[in-house]
Design a protein around this nucleic acid. Sequence first.
DNA 1: AGCGCAGCGGAACAGGTTGG
DNA 2: CCAACCTGTTCCGCTGCGCT
Length: 315
Amino acid sequence: MNLLHLKYAVEIEKTGSITKAANNLFMGQPNLSKAIKELENEIGITIFRRTTKGVAPTEKGGEFLGYAKAVLDQFDEMVSLYKPKVDDGVRFSISVPRATYITKAFSNFVSLLDTDKEISINFKETNSMDAINNILNFDFKLGIIRYQNIHEKQYFAMLDGKNLKYRPLWEFEYRLLVNKDSPLAKENPDGIVKYSDLEDYIEIVHGDLSVPSLSFSKVSRSSVSEHRKKRIYVYERGSQFDLLGNLYNTYMWVSPVPKSCLEQHAMVQLKCDVPYKVNKDVLIFPKGYSLSKLDEQFIAELERVKEKIKMDGLY
DNA sequence: AGCGCAGCGGAACAGGTTGG
DNA sequence: CCAACCTGTTCCGCTGCGCT
């Protein structure tokens, strides 16, 4: 018995006829008949009851066919795991910093995809080192990393060393994200908060935001919020909006947020009177990799969201 | 490279049932 | 009765594989 015999039996059950099944299998009826007989002899049961109208599974035959189909399904699944994909389905993987404007661009991008095709997308919100690692060691082709401008040389040297190409996306100063009913928003109608006023508020920080390893240990120490003592670390992005929404004495440093997202979560975005270091989001990908049409579409959506934020006067 | 073996598939044929 | 359709059997050729 081999997989071919199982395939034969399943096809015969499907058509209810050895002759028709043989046609579908591009073989002669006698050979299919013979193959099934051999199979039946080998396992010691009658799989099909022969009639003048065709064939029908016996009770035990039906049970056997159930197992046969499961085995064939499992085999197909195994093959598809290793077989190179030749279909024109949508495959896209990217690691990004936790940024609302990027998430917004991503949802716009997904909404434009052809849903008739097979879609397999990985969208991972993570830190810069992980984004780099995902390209080097996993099947990610794209990543967006975020760093302060003053560290750019170090990042470029590292990316070059790892054979990664980079393309700047956006250079921006952080903004303060607060609930629209936060005293910070109400007491500063001009939208500019005094840095000293933040003393009484709790900062919400992403748990793995600080850049680990290498020579960047100073990054988090020199970051805008290092000297603040009141902090809540969140490790899941949904939590940040819950906290900001429910606790009026919290704030968060963020990249510029699209208007629709601010309205959706009843938030406002404020400036701070202290000139902070400029941050940069940079697209990275392996050297020698040419951006696909899909990649370009995603980048175009990023640009569109960025422009909309500027048009809405939010940056 | 040559040989033998096993497996697969095609051609031809046999036999049974059904319906006009 | 006969054509049409079904399954089963036998024979033969081709192909791939392992062994020498």
